[in-house]
């Protein structure tokens, strides 16, 4: 399992691995929004939590279709399915590697981009915390979507359509936690719900994804 994690991280870091893809997208979005919306700091502060969360979500989505598709194309997925590692473990490790290369850098970069969007001071800690708690769910749910569409040529569009509705609860609670904190209210309920979604999907979806993979490998 560790070998698979190290391989996936190494592949992401090498040229063409897509490590900077999500982060770059997130950065561009946060830079462009103030230019498009205008320099009114009040408006920016109001929409900043939502923009940052939507940006993180779309950035996660961007690199998802490669999660199993590349391994399927070069035959690694067949070989992993016949290896001693259970397919559920393969899914969990690949989702973890996806989070380490996408969700974690996004959560770490978010406070910097919060400054660009004039995010109110008390919201910075909840922003980082909600992204740290919420983005693992995005990776795991995305792994499930990627597993469902793995055999399809150009399955990216179908995968986005399948995955986006499942992303909604995470987005709602994650963004809610940040915007409540920005208004000086207590956002801990929304944070707990975000964490709950992550825990639930991390516990259940690897099994569903492994089942989908087995069917798609036939």
């Amino acid at each position: 399992m560790t070998a698979l994690l190290i391989r996936d991280l190494r592949l992401a870091m090498r040229a063409g691995g897509g490590f900077g893809l999500g982060l770059g997208f997130f950065l561009i979005l946060a830079v462009l929004v103030p230019l498009g919306v205008g320099p009114d700091t009040g408006t920016l502060a109001l929409i900043a939590p939502g923009i940052l969360w939507v940006g993180a979500l779309l950035a996660c989505l961007l690199s998802l279709d490669r999660l199993f598709a590349l391994d399927h194309e070069d035959g690694s997925l067949d070989l992993l399915a016949t290896s001693p590692i259970p397919l559920e473990g393969v899914v969990a490790v690949k989702a973890l590697a996806h989070w380490l290369t996408t969700g974690l850098p996004l959560a770490l970069a978010a406070p910097v981009l919060g400054i660009l969007l004039n995010l109110p001071g008390p919201a910075f800690a909840p922003l980082m915390l909600s992204l740290l708690l919420g983005t693992p769910a995005l990776s795991v749910i995305g792994a499930f979507g990627a597993a469902l569409t793995v055999g399809l040529k150009r399955g990216g569009l179908l995968m986005s359509l399948l995955v986006l509705p499942l992303y909604v609860p995470t987005l709602v609670f994650g963004a809610q936690a940040v915007s409540r904190a920005a208004q000086g209210l207590d956002g801990s309920t929304a944070l707990l719900l975000t964490a709950g979604i992550t825990a639930g999907s991390a516990a259940l979806l690897p099994f569903a994804a492994a089942f989908a993979l087995r069917i798609n490998l036939r």
């Binding site: 391989r7 592949l11 090498r14 063409g16 691995g17 035959g75 067949d78 016949t82």
Partner: peptide, 14 residues
């Protein structure tokens, strides 16, 4: 069983 098919399961950047 060790299975080997048409695709070798190699990663081009490794």
């Amino acid at each position: 069983m060790a299975y080997a098919a048409h695709a070798d399961g190699l990663k081009s950047t490794l």
